[in-house]
Write a protein that binds this DNA or RNA. Structure first.
Length: 642
RNA sequence: GCCGGAGUAGCUCAGCUGGCAGAGCGCGUGUCUUGUAAACACGAGGUCACGGGUUCGAUCCCCGUCUCCGGCUCCA
């Protein structure tokens, strides 16, 4: 028979030949390097038989997806080690994931495994890898497999097989054996465990069986595997780098913000961080002005009744803080209040003030609105998941005809704003009706169609997230990719027919009749604080000149230069430069070092020579020595960079 | 909320099998008057997260609570 290689050339093989035979026929080097075979894009075991006329490709360490293959192998090896060390362990699933693999186990009653035990598991894995055990596939009938796993006391495997039968009507399943361990597995696998050249177990975590909160909590062990020790070392190095730019570390280090036990999940912004927030806000305001928004400011505490009207009480109560005045705390008939988790009801009350003509629409009400949400313990994460934050929120009231143009304008504002902060890749997601929601199917369909058509008019590619919309309407979410390649959700644009209904909002049309406006909820950055956290990580705390909370550190050489340094500070401040003076009795070297560590982009040394020249010796972190410049030249350099 | 881990000076961390609490940095004071990534000396700083228990005696062992870290679930 004949198969075709990737370069189009034919390869003659005896009928019944396998992937391994094909690799051997091409050359002994390839035979040794071969891990699997790809047939028409589908990866299979090297031992799988080939068919006449198939297009094949030998998978080696260099192929796409090869890492996933050995990481999957490594997951099996880990399960092997774990089952040996903890007899009676029930195994579940162990797939490769981005950057590594995991396997979920249920340990026998009374056994707890902790990070300290990972070393022993790793050691046992190393023995199986050194033994270079083969991965051996067998296909057996479902009935036989069920019996086998029932006998072995592996209920998770039994459940998986039962689901395969129910969902995919399979009649046989495949088993893979390596050494003493046999697992239900679709494959494919490399020929043997020795192909894993470097493996490391990272961490331990609880994980619900099948991701379901109501089901058994399993113990997940995370690890990673590579084709060389060096690749592993580089991977560890990358993780270290990500740690170094973690905003939770940089925030306190650079005096940007802090957290305190007195208010878990609610950041305290320090003077330096507040400057950063103000700078971010200024950029948002530019977009507001450009796109015809007016700003409002509404209360954070509102009557509980309002939240019943808006639907939040029914759909969002678990995440809300409630509050009442002390003297009424015990009076069950007293008015009850809630701290707002969203700004929209307040905006609706603003719209409800007075009568509106169709000529006023679209009415774009923007608010930097502080919201508070009760997030469950265990989900808080630095600035990225908090209990109180400021949304760069806005609610656009418009007619149905106006809505598509409004959505398009919002997408454009988002693109402009993100690129200002160095994010050029923006991914768009459309989320549709969730289970817990209000309104009719027809209205949801109309709203979803409206969002789709706006995206299509923009020629934007987007992904659909079924069931992920807000309870009052479908939404478009905007994601950016940061300097480390991680994706973050920022902005959102949500269409809402229902809130105007619930608040009985109307405008007077050209026909002199009352009409219901449509409402668009939108945020460009989402949470100001979260965005600041993302920016800290994106730039690793080393902000561009225009965004640095402190742009220049003025460093007097000796105590006698302090006065000149203060004069320079005043001059720069007048020119809009954010500078500070380091007047400590320390050496210049020390002051430079401290300024560098606090990631100040410019250091201005003021000594006898500079006094004569009427300026400061400028040292830039980026470009080094810039010579002596006066305040005007320094300010010009900073503003041109912005 | 769930699983695993952690909490010692402002920060980073050491502290053996239970026996009076330690370092570096930072901070304060003094000396030096500093020239492009760390001058020197001295000093102050602690309810060892909090509450209970075991013990002659607890930072250390046990129980509970709070917070943080890695995940799971959740993220409207």
């Amino acid at each position: 028979m004949t198969v075709t290689l990737p370069d189009g050339s034919p390869l003659e093989l005896e009928s019944g030949a396998t992937g391994a035979d094909a690799a051997a026929a091409i050359g002994p080097g390839l035979a040794k390097a071969a891990l699997a075979i790809r047939v028409g894009g589908e990866t299979r075991d090297l031992g799988a038989p080939l068919g006449d006329g198939e297009e094949i490709e030998i998978v080696t360490a260099k192929s796409d997806g090869a890492l996933d293959l050995i990481r999957h192998d490594a997951a099996h090896v880990m399960a092997t080690a774990v089952c040996e060390l903890y007899p009676g362990t029930r195994v579940s699933i162990g797939p490769p994931i981005d950057g590594g693999f995991y396997y979920d186990f249920e340990f026998p009653e009374g056994v707890t495994v902790s990070d300290a035990d990972l070393e022993a598991i790793e050691k046992r894995m190393a023995e199986h890898i050194a033994a270079d055990e083969e991965f051996e596939r067998t296909d057996i009938p479902v009935a036989e497999a069920l019996e086998r796993f029932r006998e072995e006391g592996q209920p998770y495997k039994v459940e998986l097989i039962e689901d395969l039968v129910a969902n995919e009507r399979v009649e046989t399943v495949s088993l893979y054996r390596n050494g003493p361990f046999t697992d239900l597995c679709r494959g494919p696998h490399a020929p043997s465990t020795g192909r894993i050249k470097a493996v490391k177990l990272n961490s331990l975590a609880g994980a619900y069986w099948r991701g379901d909160e109501t089901r058994q909590m399993l113990t997940r062990i995370y690890g990673t595997a590579f084709f060389s020790k060096q690749d592993l070392a580089e991977h560890i190095e990358r993780i270290e780098q990500a740690k170094a730019r973690d905003h939770r570390r940089l925030g306190p280090q650079l005096d940007l913000f802090m957290f305190r036990d007195e208010s878990p999940g609610m950041p305290f912004w320090l003077p330096q961080g507040t400057v950063l927030l103000d700078l971010i806000e200024a950029e948002v305001r530019k977009q507001l002005d450009k796109h015809g928004y007016v700003r409002v400011d509404t209360p954070q505490i509102l009557d509980e009744e309002l939240w019943h009207r808006s639907g939040h009480y029914d759909n969002y109560r678990e995440n809300m803080f409630f509050t009442q005045p002390a003297e009424r705390a015990r009076d069950e008939h007293a008015r009850r209040f809630a701290v707002r988790p969203m700004n929209c009801p307040g905006a609706c009350l603003v719209f409800d003030n007075g009568r509106h003509s169709y000529r006023e629409l679209p009415l774009r009400l923007a608010e930097f609105g502080r919201v508070s949400r009760y997030e469950r313990e265990g989900v808080l994460h630095g600035l990225l998941r908090v209990r109180a934050f400021t949304q760069d929120d806005a609610h656009v009231y418009c007619t149905r005809e106006q809505a598509p143009d409004e959505v398009i304008a919002i997408v454009e504002a988002i693109d402009e704003l993100y690129s200002r902060f160095g994010f050029d890749q923006v991914d768009v997601e459309l989320s549709t009706r969730p289970e817990k929601s209000i309104g009719s199917d027809e209205e949801w369909e109309e709203a979803e169609a409206m969002l789709r058509s706006a995206l299509e008019r923009l020629g934007r590619e987007y992904r659909v997230n079924p069931g992920d919309g807000a309870f009052y309407g479908p939404k478009i979410d905007f994601h950016v990719t940061d300097a480390l390649g991680r994706s973050w959700q920022l902005g959102t644009c949500q269409l809402d027919f229902f809130m105007p209904e619930r608040f009985d909002l109307t405008y007077q049309g050209a026909d002199n009749q009352d009409h219901r406006p449509l409402m668009i909820h939108r945020a460009l950055l989402g949470s100001m604080e979260r965005f600041a956290g993302i920016l800290i990580e994106h730039y690793g705390g080393r902000f561009p000149d225009w965004l640095a909370p402190t742009q220049a550190a003025i460093l007097p050489v000796a105590d006698r230069h302090a006065e000149a340094a203060e004069a320079m500070l005043a001059e720069l401040a007048a020119l809009g430069v954010r500078a500070r003076v380091d007047a400590r009795s320390e050496s210049v070297g020390k002051k430079i070092r401290d300024a560098e560590l606090s990631k100040v982009p410019y250091m201005l040394v003021v000594g006898d020579r500079e006094l004569d020249a009427g300026g400061a010796a400028v040292r830039s972190h980026e470009d080094g020595d810039l010579g002596v410049l006066d305040a005007g030249a320094i300010a010009a350099r900073l503003s041109s960079a912005g």
